[in-house]
Design a protein around this nucleic acid. Sequence first.
DNA 1: CAGAATACGGACTGATAGTCCGCTTGTCAA
DNA 2: TTGACAAGCGGACTATCAGTCCGTATTCTG
Lengths: 192, 192
Amino acid sequence: MQEERADAARNRKAILEAADNLFAISDSPSEVSMDDIAHAAGVGKGTLFRRFGDRRNLIQQVYAVRLAPLREQIESGPPPLGPDTPPRERVSAIIDAIAVVKLDNAHLMLALEEGTGPTNGLYESADYVAVHGLLRDLVAGKFGKSRASWIAHSLLANVRADLLGHLVKGEGMSHSNIRSNLRDFVAHTLDY
Amino acid sequence: MQEERADAARNRKAILEAADNLFAISDSPSEVSMDDIAHAAGVGKGTLFRRFGDRRNLIQQVYAVRLAPLREQIESGPPPLGPDTPPRERVSAIIDAIAVVKLDNAHLMLALEEGTGPTNGLYESADYVAVHGLLRDLVAGKFGKSRASWIAHSLLANVRADLLGHLVKGEGMSHSNIRSNLRDFVAHTLDY
DNA sequence: CAGAATACGGACTGATAGTCCGCTTGTCAA
DNA sequence: TTGACAAGCGGACTATCAGTCCGTATTCTG
C-alpha cells in the first residue's frame, strides 16, 4: 500500500466534510447530488468518484466517522455497552445507543438507509449484519436460535432511521419520549 | 365526472396488467422503468403518464387491487378482521393479514415502500396512516395515548416489505415460520 | 356522417450517477 | 535543484430515467 499523496488526502477530507455539511443542511438526502458535493468540496467529479467509487460508499465513509465511537464502545468498551455486560442490559443499552446516534445524525442515517433500489441492501450491509448477529447471540439464551434471529431483526426495526425521522418530524415526539418508549418496549420484549 | 372513453379504459387496463407482470418478473422494482411498462402495455409514454400522473401513483393503483379485499374485510367484514372483534384479537389478525398480503405480493410491496428519496413517504401514505390510526385506537385501551401510537408504529415495523423480503430471500425463512414468530411477538407485546 | 371533445404517442427536456482521458501536480532520486 | 514519471485531477461526455408537450388520430354525439 502506497502513501496517499498530499493533494489526494486534502481532497478526501474536503469531500467528506462537504458531503456531511450538505446532507445536514438539506431536507432530504436525495436532494444532494454528487455534483453538488464535488462542487462544494471544490473538486471535480472525477476526483470524487475515483476516491469513493459510488454514492453509497461515500455516504458510508461519511457516517463511519460518526459510528466509530459506538462500534468501539460495543466491541471493547466498559459496561453497559461493552462485552462485560449481562446480555439483557447490553441489548437494551445497544438499542438505546443506536437510537441516540440515529436521532443525532438523522440526515446521514436517512441517506444511508435510503433505498435506491437494488443498491439498497440495508440488510446486507456489513454494519447491519454485525449488529444483528451480536443481538441475535445475546438473546439466543432466552429464545431459540431461529427465534433469536427474528427478535434481533424486530428490535432493529424499531430504530430504523425513517421511522425515527417520522416520529420526530411527523409526530413531533421528543427524543426522550422516543427513547423511553423504546426502553420499555425492549425491556418488555426481553423479560418473560 | 365524464364517462371514460373506450380506448382510454382499454389502455388503463393494459398498463396496470403490464406493470403488475413486470414487477412480478423483475428482481428489483427499480429495474422496471416507466418506458418498459409503456412498451409492454403497447402504449406511448404520454398515455401512461396522463392516466397515472407519476410512478408512485401507478404503483399504488396496481397494488390497490390486491389490497382492496383486505381493506374491505377490516372495515366491514366478519371477525377476526372486522369491527366486531375484541381489540386484542383484531390487532393480531390485522398484523397477520398484512404479513400474508406482503409475503404474497413481495414484488409490489417492495416497489411501494421503495424510498425514492423525498417522494417516499411510507409514513405519509394514506394506507399507512389509516392502518396506523386503527391499530393505535385498538391498543389505546391498554396503553397510554402517545404510547399507543408508538406501539402501533412498532407493530407495523415488523411487517415492512423489505424486512419480510430479507427474511425470506436472505435468511430462507418460511412464510409460516415468519408468521409464527410474528404471532408470538404480537401476543407478547399485547399481553401484559 | 361531421364536428367537437378526448386521447394517443413518441420526440423532447432536465437531472443525475458514473466514466474517460488529456492535462497538472506531487514526489523522489540523482 | 531538477527532471521525469507516477499519481492525481477535472470537467466534458455517456447512459438512463421520470416526466412534459403538442401535432395527430380516435371515439363519441347528434
